[in-house]
Design a protein around this nucleic acid. Structure first.
Length: 284
DNA sequence: ATTGGTTCCTGCTGGC
DNA sequence: TGCCAGCAGGAACCAA
């Protein structure tokens, strides 16, 4: 599912096609995604130039030349598919889940496709960005300077929920989802069931380092491609081949030499309604 | 205030 | 082989 590394990969794929380009045409093909589209969505975007594209947590933020910001969230199944203009070739037919089509002044099409419609699009003034309800409570960027062991420890202090749930809380650290939380806890050797407030000192330091490491590696690999997710240019990411525990129930834990038939290997449990994968031997 | 459960949605998977 | 229940999950929302 698109988590921080996947969104970062999409942003990097979109930049060369959209930054500095004008949106010649914008088609909104249904009234809502997860929420209704803002009023006059397409009209307010048409003719605008995209000055800068950046990422905050799992959100893409497109800064426009008139002081508006277009916010996009890929939800579970959202993709940005790029169709370059080609001489004399018939355009690829639209899919029924192509909900928004942006066409630039160069003729490039960017199609937002989202089968499950958990995605979000919003459009608002740059000046209100810091108070935007979806952005205002977000925690630090895990790859930024504001994220550290002591900072993480402070955010976890007093939290009685399992560390797994705490890391999914976007107010603690922004951008992690189920996959990378499982992977980071594995790397840090921490049990997903451990109460969050017990992750202090060296444990918090290890966990912060593990979060950074797993996200950095995933971005280098171009993200993880599940059946839902394709990078902006249609290339597949490779990080799913590097998962140590996610989706590997019953397989041997890559950190243990033990036989999965004897030890049980990677275990699965359900926490806050989602699957957690972990190695009970290595993670305490 | 904090925490846990439910909901939205569709496509894929696995069991019969 | 075909059918269909169940599962996947980000984050708002609600209830305790």
């Amino acid at each position: 599912m698109p988590e921080l590394p996947e969104v970062e990969t999409v942003v990097r794929g979109l930049r060369p096609r959209l930054e500095g380009r004008r949106l010649a045409e914008v088609q909104q093909r249904r009234p809502n995604l997860r929420f209704p589209f803002p009023e006059n969505f397409a009209a307010r975007l048409t003719g605008r130039k995209v000055e800068r594209i950046r990422r905050r947590a799992k959100y893409m933020l497109l800064h426009l030349d008139d002081g508006q910001v277009l916010l996009c969230h890929l939800g579970m199944s959202g993709r940005m598919m790029i169709h370059e203009a080609a001489d004399g070739e018939a355009p690829t037919p639209l899919d029924r889940h192509d909900h928004v089509v942006f066409t630039t002044d160069e003729g490039t099409e960017v199609r937002f496709n989202d089968a499950r419609r958990f995605g979000i699009m919003d459009l608002f003034a740059d000046a209100t960005l810091d108070s935007h309800p979806l952005l205002k409570d977000l925690g630090p960027e895990p790859l930024g300077n504001d994220f550290s062991g002591p900072g993480l420890a402070a955010a976890l202090k007093g939290k009685r929920s399992p560390i797994k749930a705490a890391l999914l809380d976007q107010r603690v650290v922004a951008g992690l989802g189920n996959i990378y939380v499982c992977e980071a806890l594995f790397l840090a050797g921490l049990s997903p069931r451990r109460q969050a407030y017990t992750v202090q000192g060296g444990r918090a330091e290890r966990l912060a380092g593990a979060v950074r490491q797993v996200l950095t590696r995933a971005i280098e690999a171009g993200g993880s491609s599940l059946r839902d997710y394709v990078q902006a240019d249609g290339e597949l990411g490779y990080f799913q081949h590097e998962w140590a525990v996610y989706g590997r129930e019953g397989e041997g834990c890559p950190g243990c030499d033990c036989d999965p038939a004897v030890s049980g290997g990677v275990a699965r449990l359900v926490q806050s309604g989602r699957s957690t994968f972990f190695c009970a031997r290595r993670q305490r």
